[in-house]
């Protein structure tokens, strides 16, 4: 029921009911190969590496690149520039590619009549249906950013919700505030819950980058978010309803 695939320097874990067939796994591998060949900044043969080195032009871009770039442009606008993929003239779509991959894997599973699953790709999670192990909703724990293994909150994900967390604890300060051109350090972690995995992933990163502007943004846009800062948790009342009591 659980499949693990190493790709894009991360582990992709799919828990599904029923189990994935070989042909579904082949479809997923083909998708991941396409994404890796297109967007991997650390592969000199990828399209984006060649584009950044001026060995390719935007006119040569594969269809998937055009689609993801348009998506990224939409989110850059939605987040008032806090979601950014271009820096010093170089393009890097790592902030959205993982979510795009999850979204496409979800489509593959649904097309193959797999309706109960959880896709976990580097901590970004998409659920569908229920967890048949316990015959109940999928429940995802939010990691304590200050310790190794503790869970701070459990979120019950009905309505096929997705959940993503951005934080600095795994690799030092790594999210840039693109407006101020400095690393974002205000939050210890930011978690977003949404029906769309692309929404949850991009908004988690953008809210982290927004720093203290994130509070008003989630209230204006009605985003389900949970912030951890200085050993305290802040979250909307709508998110409270999803927390296991």
């Amino acid at each position: 029921m659980i499949r693990k695939i190493q790709t894009m320097s991360m582990e992709l874990i799919i828990e599904s009911f029923p189990e994935l067939s070989e042909s579904v796994i082949d479809d997923i591998n083909n998708l991941l190969t396409l994404i890796d060949d297109t967007f991997n900044n650390y592969n000199s043969n990828s399209y984006i590496s060649k584009l950044n080195l001026k060995k390719k032009t935007i006119d040569d871009s594969p269809k998937v690149f055009k689609y993801v770039k348009e998506l990224a442009d939409e989110y850059r606008k939605k987040t008032n520039g806090y979601f950014e993929y271009e820096f010093n003239g170089f393009l890097n779509f790592n902030g959205i590619v993982k979510a795009y991959a999850i979204s496409k894997i979800k489509d593959i599973l649904l097309t193959n009549n797999i309706n109960n699953f959880l896709i976990n790709f580097g901590g970004d999670i998409k659920t569908h249906g229920i967890d048949l192990k316990v015959n109940n909703n999928w429940v995802v724990g939010i990691k304590n950013p200050y310790t190794k293994n503790d869970i701070l909150k459990r979120i019950k994900l009905y309505k096929n919700y997705s959940i993503s967390t951005s934080g600095s604890y795994e690799r030092g300060y790594h999210i840039l505030n693109p407006i101020l051109k400095k690393s974002a350090t205000y939050f210890d972690s930011v978690t977003v819950v949404s029906e769309s995995i692309i929404d949850s992933d991009v908004f988690a990163t953008a809210l982290y980058a927004m720093e203290d502007n994130a509070y008003t943004y989630i209230l204006e846009k009605n985003i389900l978010a949970l912030f951890i800062k200085n050993n305290k948790i802040y979250f909307n009342s709508n998110l409270q309803k999803l927390c296991n009591q």
Binding site: S9, M10, V134, V139, K143, S189
Partner: peptide, 15 residues
């Protein structure tokens, strides 16, 4: 800390 049942963990795990 919450120690109840979970299906998975969401965290910043990207290297």
């Amino acid at each position: 800390t919450d120690s109840g049942y979970i299906s998975a963990v969401s965290g910043a795990t990207y290297f």
